[in-house]
Design a protein around this nucleic acid. Structure first.
Length: 462
RNA sequence: GGGCCCGUAGCUCAGCUCGGUAGAGCAUCUGGCUUUUAACCAGGUGGUCGUGGGUUCGAAUCCCACUGGGCCCGCCA
């Protein structure tokens, strides 16, 4: 194979009359006796092969008579135009590269059934090439985030996915059993935070990990139980530095990939031109509702749950504050927005704000009304950290099954002294949704989880 | 967990209201056609109608349960 379809189309003036060989899947075939037109699709797109029986050697002729839509074919021939002006490869030789045993979906309507598209992603990719483009963009975005972090001198590391104590976020974990370790109960990580911080304590200074994390909760259009984020920790830095980093990272990606810092998303324009908006949400809520969520008692929180009809199972200050944000402010975050300065009690791993100990130095970046990054100046004080773990443990005993467990090993590590550090978790799935104009996270995950089908219900084409 | 919608040929769909032998287009196979663009013309093959139960002389169609999917809500960094 010497050329992709798109290269031949783009370089036609240069390639006309030259011999090329292409390879790909036959997507359409128009046979008119002594001449056949086959649309060959490779990963770049489609190009027409123009095949005159008279031009073929006997072996190629045999291949042609047995060819059908769905076969992988190799075509060698001259770049030319058909009478109707379509750029084509005038075949001299045809090779059967692989024969399909099944029939492809309808050439006109394609494969549109959402379930079938996710279950049989190979068919989806064949029939809907824009899906391939979506995942190319995903790949570019991950590459871009890595490049950004590499350019800051960070090293990429890998930490355990199977953990015996999980932490770093609030979520229900998946559990599993390690048989050769006395059937010990293990957890799939919900975040890599506590391991990466150990590396900072050890002196690594700048580390990141591309991390699949697992949270045992329902899927919806913005949540998948298995999702990807990149966590990055930088010593001698703070959350202000990371706001600048995110502005630069996202705007340069949009510019590089789409030629503009403005991106169309679902009929609206999202503008990544720095600086991004800043929303001091505790202040906003105070102005709007007269409530200071940074100092709510349990009683006040419970009363607000009633008055605001939040309907929370655990109407504690954490969940009430979170819910008020969702109800009143989340809708205003279409444009890239730093939502910042959280109540300190919501942030058990975060340093308190300089000048206001009720608040924490933390921001969440929202784009398209979705949280796409979460960052803070890390809590480095082992004594305060121990107290926060104790608080979490109390919440846990009160019935909040998402409150993370006490982690004595981590406390032991941080007691050696941790430099001031900024940390961030950059969601991959959600920004990719924005950059590929998708409204469901399943469109940016190649194999979203599906319930199992009863036996014998494949694409069985008998 | 709650609500609404959906599941018929490999794919895209009609048939269901009002029960009476399972349909179309594409794909596939056979024949014709040497510049087509969803090529065209003629003929053929292809179905546990998501699964199970009920009503009925008779169920793709009516009823119940289950199952899988989508959307919305709840939960969810």
């Amino acid at each position: 194979m010497t050329h992709h379809a798109q290269e031949i189309k783009d370089g036609f003036s240069r390639l006309e009359g030259k011999e090329v060989s292409i390879a790909g899947r036959a997507m359409q075939m128009r046979q008119m006796g002594g001449i056949t037109f086959i649309d060959i699709q490779d990963r770049s797109g489609k190009i027409q092969a123009l095949i005159r029986n008279n031009d073929l050697d006997p072996k190629s002729l045999l291949v042609l008579t047995h060819a059908s839509i769905g076969d992988n074919l190799g075509i060698r021939g001259m770049v030319m135009k058909s009478k109707r002006g379509e750029i084509s490869v005038g075949a001299k030789e045809i090779t059967m590269l692989s024969k399909t045993l099944r029939t492809l979906p309808n050439k006109w309507h394609g494969l549109t059934d959402t379930e079938a598209r996710y279950r049989y992603r190979h068919l989806d990719l064949m029939m809907n090439q824009e899906v391939l483009r979506t995942f190319e963009t995903r790949s570019k975005f991950m590459r871009h985030v890595r490049d950004t972090l590499d350019s800051r001198g960070a090293i990429e590391v890998e930490t355990p996915i199977l953990q015996d104590v999980y932490g770093g976020a609030k979520a229900k974990p998946f559990t599993t059993v390690y048989h050769t370790l006395d059937d010990k109960q293990m957890y799939l990580r919900i975040s890599d935070e506590l391991y990466l911080k150990r590396l900072i304590i050890g002196g690594a200074e700048r580390v990141y990990e591309v991390s699949k994390d697992f949270r045992n909760e329902d899927a919806d259009t913005t949540h998948n139980p298995e999702f990807t984020q990149i966590e990055y920790y930088e010593a001698y830095s703070d959350y202000e530095a990371f706001m600048k980093m995110m502005e630069e990272m996202l705007s340069s990606f949009a510019l590089k990939t789409f030629g503009s810092t403005k991106v169309e998303y679902q009929g609206e324009t999202i503008d990544f031109t720095p600086p991004f908006a800043r929303m001091y949400w505790v202040d906003e809520l105070k102005k709007m509702l007269g409530v200071d969520v940074s100092k709510m008692s349990d009683e006040v929180a419970a009363r607000i749950n009633e008055i605001e009809k939040l309907g929370l199972k655990h109407p504690d200050p954490y969940h009430v504050a979170d819910s008020l944000f969702d109800k009143y402010l989340k809708g205003k975050t279409l444009q890239p927005t730093f939502v910042l300065d959280f109540p300190a009690f919501m942030c058990p791993l975060t340093k308190v704000k300089r000048g206001n100990p009720l608040l924490a130095e933390r921001f969440e970046l929202y784009v398209g009304r979705m949280e796409v990054a979460n960052s803070y100046s890390e809590l480095t004080d082992p004594i305060y950290q121990r107290k926060m773990f104790e608080d979490q443990e109390r919440e846990r005993k009160k019935g909040d099954e998402e409150a993370p467990p006490f982690d004595e090993d981590f406390l032991d590590a941080i007691e050696y002294g941790m430099p001031p550090t900024a940390g961030i978790g950059i969601s991959i799935d959600r920004p990719v949704m924005v950059f590929t104009n998708q409204t469901s996270i399943k469109e940016v995950i190649l194999f979203p989880p599906m319930k199992s089908l009863p036996p014998n219900e494949g694409t069985g084409d008998k």
